[in-house]
């Protein structure tokens, strides 16, 4: 999984075998993308995409691209599986701040909180969480520390 983002496009390598955990959140391209919107009235950014602005209630939002690079704002690790979870533990979990003025709740590829620090640069990756009954990787978005030389696997 280390190579999902660093060894070239996920499309072509994994596309037939990987499926998104849900539609409409992210694109698995190279680079991957979070699918966001912003309000035509107040300009606030939303993730996931909205049709009505949750901040000012105006109808009418425009799709925007969010930066794939941000900084770490809060982090922890989940050490035992929550109900319904199909992946492995421990896994990293936190909040990342992006330059567009948005904070995203996200999985983190690093599952040892001691190896992360406040404000540390992070980037978006698409990571496998579990395999479905057909053996396909079910993937989701996660953020990884730029500095981490050997990212811990998202699902391990």
């Amino acid at each position: 999984m280390t190579g999902v983002s660093s060894e070239g496009p996920l499309v072509g390598k994994l596309a037939q075998r990987a499926i998104a955990v849900t539609a409409g959140l992210f694109e698995m391209g190279d680079p991957p993308r979070l699918l966001a919107s912003s309000c035509n009235e107040c300009g606030q950014p939303h993730f996931p995409r909205q049709e009505t602005c949750p901040y000012c209630s105006a109808d009418g939002c425009t799709d925007i691209e969010l930066s794939n690079n941000g900084t770490l704002w809060a982090w922890t690790a989940v050490t035992s599986a929550p109900p319904g979870y199909k992946g492995a533990v421990p896994y990293g979990f936190g909040v990342v701040e992006l330059p567009e003025g948005i904070r995203i709740v996200t999985r983190l590829t690093e599952s040892d909180p001691a190896r992360l620090s406040y404000g540390e640069p992070v980037h978006l990756e698409i990571v496998p969480v579990y395999q479905d009954e057909d053996g396909r990787d079910v993937v989701t978005f996660a953020f990884a520390a730029d500095a981490s030389d050997a990212p811990v696997q998202g699902g391990e």
Binding site: V21, V78, G84, Y85, G87, R107
Partner: peptide, 26 residues
Amino acid sequence: GMIRSSFFEPWQEESGMSATPAYFAL
């Protein structure tokens, strides 16, 4: 044990986004 809440969508549970104590921890 950990509360299972219908607040979360199935995909959020499946991908580890529904761990209530993790939100408390953050």
